[in-house]
């Protein structure tokens, strides 16, 4: 059984961050405020989600689980686009994030619940929400990186892309190398995660389960499942997002339309 943490225990850990803030202040790093705000925000967000999950687990209602999943999906698609240096302007940018994540993270989570984990009922929030959260978080990072690479490279390599169009290539042909690079860029964190798992780092979920008293091999099996699901979701999500993103950069006349990108962020 997990050892419960009291507010005092958390305050002790918080003391370490406070000490860091003081040292940073002495060194004139001007990071103390960000550190304080970031820590407070993290505590508030986690406490809030703790209460939400508590209520959700008590209800076991499909409607509430779906609503929660939809909110997570919407927030993730907003985050994907908000972090882009050259985002695709307008609602199309958000819809690319939403569509790619909905089609991959959400469906792969549903697949895992229905055919692999098989809790009863299949939408048991204790399984559904953490699974979706972990898959969505990683997919969001992968799709964000892939789209960021795609749009930045398209803007910087405009002459080369138009040069290929002028040689008679279609938009797909002219963008093929760039699309491959973008998909690769989106998968790099996942590939690093796979390579480091168990050797350089102990994954968070597995560590959490072990801390909660689960037998290590059970925790490992769950971790392997999660990593495989994350890899599939990130890979497919990146492919979809890059496909839709590249299509948005061209019009029906096979012209590169860079004005569909928002001005670069500073």
């Amino acid at each position: 059984m997990i050892e419960s943490l009291s507010a005092l225990d958390l305050l002790l850990a918080g003391g370490l961050v406070a000490a860091l803030g003081v040292v940073q202040f002495w060194h004139g790093l001007q990071l103390t405020r960000s550190l304080l705000m970031g820590s407070l925000r993290m505590v508030a967000q986690l406490l809030l989600i703790g209460y939400v999950l508590n209520a959700l687990f008590a209800t076991e209602s499909l409607g509430w689980v779906l609503l929660m999943a939809l909110m997570m999906l919407l927030l993730a698609s907003y985050e994907v686009i908000a972090r882009q240096k050259r985002r695709i302007a307008g609602w199309q940018g958000y819809s690319i994030g939403l569509l790619s994540m909905g089609a991959t993270a959400a469906s792969i989570t549903a697949f895992a619940l229905l055919f692999v984990v098989q809790p009863a009922p299949w939408f048991t929030p204790q399984y559904a929400i953490p699974l979706l959260g972990m898959i969505l978080g990683n997919t969001m990072t992968g799709i964000g990186l892939a789209l960021n690479h795609l749009t930045q490279m398209a803007a910087s390599q405009r002459t080369a892309i138009e040069g290929r169009l002028l040689l008679g290539q279609t938009a797909d042909q002219a963008m093929s190398g760039l699309k491959q690079d973008a998909v690769r860029a989106g998968l790099i964190p996942t590939l690093n995660m796979l390579a480091a798992a168990g050797v350089i780092s102990l994954p968070g979920m597995m560590t959490g389960q072990i801390l909660a008293g689960a037998p290590p091999l059970d925790a490992v099996r769950y971790q392997i499942l999660i990593m495989l699901l994350i890899t599939a979701a990130t890979g497919f999500g990146g492919l979809l997002a890059v496909h839709f993103g590249a299509r948005r950069l061209f019009d029906g006349r096979e012209r590169l339309r860079l004005e569909r990108l928002a001005p670069p962020k500073r």
Partner: peptide
């Protein structure tokens, strides 16, 4: 459009 572009040869200053 790609077919049209194949009928047009283009030479730019920066040669791509």
């Amino acid at each position: 459009y790609p077919k049209l572009r194949r009928q047009i040869g283009v030479v730019f200053q920066d040669h791509h």
